[in-house]
Amino acid sequence: MTTFQTAFEAKSKTTGTAASKKLGAATIVAVIFLVLSGLIFSAEDVVQGSTVRIMYVHVPSIWVAYLAFALTAIFSGVYLSNRSRSLIWDRLAGASAEIGVLFVAVSLVTGSLWGRLTWGTFWVWDARLTSTAFLFITYIGYLAVRRLGGTFRQRARRSSVMALLSVLEIPLVHFSVNLWRTLHQKASVADPNAKVSLDGLMLFTLFWGLISFTMLFAWLLVHRQRLMALEDAVQDRGLDRAIQQRRTEAGL
């Protein structure tokens, strides 16, 4: 039996709880309805045709990424400001950032496919696309910093500082379409001054996508955070075992 298995079974048979299982089931139902609404119930766009359906994944993905990175910064801030310096905040920050990176990647890939069909090209170096790519690379850097080694507290301290700085990129990415002229269109819904310009079920499907992806994010966050706690426990056990080995070798 491996050390990981021992640690895992010592704590629990699963990273889920009754509540997280209910959330998982509700997420599956929500995503199935999103697929039906996106692919069957909602109509094609008059100019884009079926390409518009990519939006129902693309926009929720970047929304979840923004949410994840904002939470990463909040959890990091709580870790730094909390007297107890509980590592649960650091693990929540790390888990949130990992999920955020995954969803930025989804957003970049789906946006690229949409761009090929609508703009005629997979990629352009305009302000929105470039800043989003930069955001993606920044948070890959954040995840790399978390794996630099050292104690859990060293990891937590340096990654918290980086998270608090990296989150400043989000307004730049989001408002890049208003600050500069970009090939990417301006915000369709998230602009308080713009009138909502999505017809019928398109708007509903987009909002449903936001809800379903947020639920998926919450479910992933709970499980990933718990898995990280187990990974830390395994690392601790490995360290304990190594120290015991050295003590035995030294005859202590």
Partner: peptide, 22 residues
């Protein structure tokens, strides 16, 4: 030597009546 179509933030459903309007 290169053309990119710049889509607006207007999304209009493709059906008969709306198509005519659009």
């Amino acid at each position: 030597d290169r053309i990119e179509v710049k889509h607006t933030n207007q999304y209009v459903e493709k059906n008969k009546s709306r198509f005519d309007e659009a």
